[in-house]
Nucleic acid binder design. Structure first.
Length: 279
DNA sequence: CAGATGCCCTGGGCGC
DNA sequence: TGCGCCCAGGGCATCT
């Protein structure tokens, strides 16, 4: 569920909380969350005593950069949360799999009931800061939206449909099922249009819609759905769900034309849209 | 190569 | 009240 806006909200909160702080201890309680490291487990010794210098985001991944090339990478998956506790004595939520304790008090907890998320440690390229495991990720949607020409090139490069392309992390990194539906509605485009079929005017609408939807979602601190899987660092839900035009609104009136929002299933996944406003 | 399917996993919602 | 089933879906593997 956490997509670009939710991850960005957590990134900003985290930046204020942990940059400049030194790690005292790292504990792993759930092996599946650090599965990328295999039997060796998370290399916690590499982290101890290090200071966090920056918190970055690459698509849906969070990067905690330390004062050496080491980077702690967190992906929230479907149900992952990062939660801050002012004191280590605060009770840990169920499904707390990784705990970072900082000098001077304060704990960061990685909580993830469905364990689709993960935590891993890597080394950034000293020249570029790039993380090798994330090399497959495509462009940041917010940056591409500034340049419709670049977006047009991405759309033309693949013979696929519009929605799968928006959600393809190798092309655009950060858009998932919720925001692809909201962006396509805002752009007035159907998700099953061939990506390469868009006119320049439609590409312009798509770029503007992506920027507007993603920025508004960040401003509203993300989308928390009924199951409340996504909450911010302090455990608070986001409010952007109240702004959804189509996602999870099957049968409700389209905010633009009043027709009923339709839900379809594509390859096992729900897609919401307005049959009147999207073409 | 595009696209479909299945798997991983748990909690919430719903039907009976 | 309670049981069992379905669903949510990001990323990846595996097919057609």
């Amino acid at each position: 569920m956490p997509e670009l806006p939710e991850v960005e909200v957590v990134r900003r909160d985290l930046e204020h909380q942990v940059v400049g702080r030194r790690l005292r201890r790292v504990e792993v309680h759930g092996a599946r969350s650090v599965r990328r490291h295999g039997a060796a487990g998370l290399p916690t010794a590499r982290l101890r005593g290090r200071t966090v210098t920056a918190v970055d985001r690459r698509g849906k991944y969070l990067l905690l950069r330390l004062d050496d090339p080491t980077v702690v990478v967190v992906h929230l998956g479907m149900s992952g949360q990062l939660r801050w506790a002012a004191s280590a004595r605060e009770r840990r939520p169920p499904h707390t799999h990784v705990v970072w304790t900082f000098e001077g008090g304060g704990q960061l907890r990685f909580v993830d009931p469905r364990t689709f998320g993960e935590v891993f440690v890597s080394a950034a390229d000293p020249a570029t800061g790039a993380v090798p495991e994330l090399a497959h990720l495509g462009a940041d949607p917010l940056e591409v939206a500034e340049r419709p020409g670049a977006l047009a090139a991405l759309l033309d490069a693949r013979r696929t449909k519009l929605k799968p392309l928006l959600m393809d992390q190798r092309v655009l990194a950060g858009i998932g099922n919720i925001y692809s539906d909201e962006i396509l509605f805002a752009a007035g485009l159907r998700g099953d249009r061939p990506a390469a079929s868009l006119t320049p005017a439609e590409v312009g609408r798509l770029a503007a819609a992506a920027a507007a939807v993603l920025r508004a979602a960040v401003a509203h601190r993300g989308s928390s759905l009924a199951d409340a899987q996504y909450v911010d660092l302090a455990g608070r839900p986001g409010r952007y769900r109240d702004c959804h035009a189509v996602y999870d609104r099957e049968g409700a009136p389209c905010p633009r034309c009043g027709r009923r929002v339709v839900r379809q299933r594509w390859s096992g996944r729900s897609t919401f849209g307005c049959p009147g406003c999207q073409r």
